[in-house]
Computed example of a mutant assay.
Amino acid sequence: MKTLIVYYSHEGNTDFVAKKIADKIGADTLRLVPVKKYPEKGFAKFFWGGKSAVMAETPELEPYSVDLDSYEQIVFGFPVWASNITPPLRTFVKENPSIKEKRIAAFACQSGAGAEKAFGKLKESIGIDSLAATLILIDPKDKPSDDNDRKIEEFCKEIKEW
């Protein structure tokens, strides 16, 4: 099954995981990049990122090119912001309504909690009832662990077994 990993990464954790998964299952990747960057440090990072997520904003993305018709499965990856998906992901979903016909899986990177709620928001924004597989990791790039490696391995098995 041809798989595309669509992701947004702010601090590199999601990028780290997306590349690991892509290598393990032979998937293509599409990194979403907002035209206007989010602050990377201090209070502004949490304030603007959280506000943007809670307000369900859809920022303009740098141009991307992908033939979604050639993929049967899409894996979304994102950092959790205020128990929500990141706004660049919301923009992609809004711009590509046909993805709800695909098999959808998702992984989330977080420092605290909120991924389960974020998966709910993702399903709601796509218009689907369930995700084929989910994965939640705590700071995987900054805090590597055998447990994270095991979870990634299990997730890859789940999304390959369809």
Rank of each mutant, 00 (worst) to 15 (best):
G112M: 10
G112K: 13
D23R: 07
T58H: 09
M1N: 14
V66Q: 01
A106T: 02
R90S: 05
E158D: 10
S70Y: 11
G112P: 07
V6G: 05
A44D: 12
H10C: 09
S125A: 15
G114A: 08
F119P: 06
E116P: 10
P79C: 03
N13W: 11
S98Q: 14
S130I: 04
E154G: 09
V54L: 13
K123N: 09
K121Q: 15
P39I: 06
L30S: 00
L4W: 00
V17P: 10
L135K: 01
A118I: 07
F16H: 13
I128S: 00
T14C: 02
T86R: 10
Q110L: 14
F92N: 02
A113M: 09
V33C: 01
I126H: 05
K20E: 08
E40S: 13
R90C: 04
V6E: 10
V66F: 03
P144R: 03
P59F: 07
A118F: 08
L32E: 08
T3I: 08
P144E: 04
D28P: 01
A133R: 07
S145H: 04
S145R: 06
K45H: 12
L4K: 00
K2L: 09
P97Q: 08
E57C: 01
F47P: 04
D15C: 08
P79W: 04
W162F: 15
L61Y: 08
I85H: 06
R150S: 12
P97W: 10
F76Y: 03
P87L: 08
A56R: 12
K157Q: 13
K41R: 11
K141H: 08
N13R: 09
K20I: 10
W162A: 15
N13L: 05
Y71L: 15
T29M: 10
K100Q: 14
G77R: 04
D28L: 01
I138T: 15
A108H: 06
K45T: 14
T58E: 13
P79R: 03
L30P: 01
K20L: 09
D139Q: 15
K100Y: 12
A108F: 02
I99L: 03
R31I: 09
Y7Q: 03
V33M: 02
H10Y: 14
K100W: 13
E72N: 12
M1W: 12
K117W: 06
S52Y: 00
L30M: 02
I85D: 03
K24D: 05
E72D: 11
D142S: 14
L135P: 01
E11M: 14
K37P: 02
G112C: 09
E40L: 15
N13E: 11
L137M: 12
W48T: 11
I99P: 00
E72P: 01
C109N: 11
A106I: 07
D23Y: 04
S65Y: 11
L89S: 08
D69L: 15
V75E: 03
I25H: 00
